[in-house]
Design a protein around this nucleic acid. Sequence first.
RNA 1: GCCUCUGUAGCUUAACGGACAAAGCGCCGGUCUUCGGAACCGGCGAUGGGGGUUCGAUUCCCUCCAGAGGCGCCA
Length: 546
Amino acid sequence: MMREQINLIIEDAAKKLAHNGFFDLAAAKPIFEAGSASVCKDRAHGDYASNAAMRLSRSAKTDPMEIARKIKEEIEKNKKAKKIFSKIEIAPPGFVNFTLADEYVKSEAGKILKLGSDYGKVRIGGGKKTQVEFVSANPSGQLHVGNGRSAFYGDVLANVLSVAGYKAKREYYINDARVSKQIQTLGATALGRGEAYLSPYLKEKILSLQKKLAKIHSETDAGYFLAQEVLKDLKKFIAKDLKIDFDRWISEECLYKRGLIIETYKFLKKKGLVFEKDDAYWLDMSKYGQKDEVLLRKNGSPTYFLSDIAYHYGKIRRGYKKIINIWGADHQGHVPRMKAVMDILGYKGEFEILICQIVTVKGGKISKREGNIVSLDWLIDEVGVDAARFFYLQNSLQSQMEFDVELAKKKSTDSPVFYVQYAHARIAGILRKACLKGSDPFKTKRVRPFQGIKEFVEIDLAKELLRLPEIVADTARDYQIQRLCLYATGVAAKFHKFYHDCQVIGEDKAIARARLDLAMAAKIVLRNTLSLLGVSAPEKMQRQKE
RNA sequence: GCCUCUGUAGCUUAACGGACAAAGCGCCGGUCUUCGGAACCGGCGAUGGGGGUUCGAUUCCCUCCAGAGGCGCCA
């Protein structure tokens, strides 16, 4: 990664300064561990900037500009750095700004062509066994637009983690326990004894199953049966329409059948954490700063909390070292309890619960209580899966979002997803044309690609393309998926600008070859980024009918 | 009442504690007879209020105001 390299160079220089007693190395250590280089927002300053001097100035008791100057001098002695940078400058109040050398950019960009679909992979995960659990919606009806957000987010997070070197699995937990109140309530509805969960979809479903339901008398049996039928629809919808491939669907009822609930209960009891009160059995969470919780109800049936503990116990025993749950905002109160449970269970790995905030469509709020639920089926039908994915993923998970259906429906570059896809299709068009003219860029191997690139827009595009590995690494660390959308849009914009300013297929063959290299590299980066987002990268786009 | 999240341009959203706060929509105005114009460029325009920490705060802390969600022997 470009930025990592720069960090190392800065660190190296700083170490030499520390060695000369310029400042205390111990104080500087955290700065270099985290890295001090970042991409310049304003390219007029350079490509990358380091704030190390400013952060060091306190412990060094020296003017940051002075430190920056020293760092610059030290780096300029470095032979390797001489090849990488064309310019190193200091700027108040103490930035060190780096500009990449054109030749270096070109040689790095050559890797994009070489790596193709592997470009962007980084090795920060170390093959760690990782699980992302998401959606896990109750099998009592269709998914709603809120589920869509966590569905796409979880899917893309798993993609990013995989590309970053984690061994990531997707899992869906099915709340289908026969003892649960919800299955019984669903059963009552199925048998016409209640109206809970009775959406238009469910109404129709029950009607179509009338013959089979007529033979069932117990509400539990009816509920379980109906839940399985609904689940079939959910699985189909998720795979075909949402294009999400779960590695595992795990059933709560299965945990019961396999005796894991009882086993977990016994485990907790053995630890001396269970006590009786008001004819029920409780988990003592006082040591964990939490309220005590019921495990077994007065009537003897286990609570959801107990089965959730058992479920997480299972995750641990299946060997996951990094466990990520994506929950809806209505479950946030459950977060501290679950974290405490992981402590009780003795889990030493990483455990994270991401809370996905509410989604609204135009004015209508999506609330289970109020019942005005907008189904995800409807939304996908309206805007298509590509636009849906991109629009959901543009926003950070923790802020509420409003889905702009009308904009997402637009088949024009007003819509960011079309803007990006169009850039890809446009490149594909150019490459097709180039092949027709005989200079097939796919067939001949080139020893030194990108020779002849020199315009600002060309170099600027190439530099942007080199950022993909950083984007992946950053996102694998902080889970801010929206960065991918922003990056894709940025690459597309730079490509369009390049295309506008520079004729690719022109008279000068050498320049044409170099520009085709650049276009192809842009195509690879766009495709890889879209692939992370689960959005298709079309070779052709339908011409819009006016 | 307590806990969590959020408050950024007219609207929908970005921004590892960094430089002049970034995009899209909308509005206004330009470019180029284009290898796919579904393009490109420019303009208008924003950090809810008040303190604090810091060389530097949209970002961290406190407080007030506003919105959302949660506080079940529901899941």
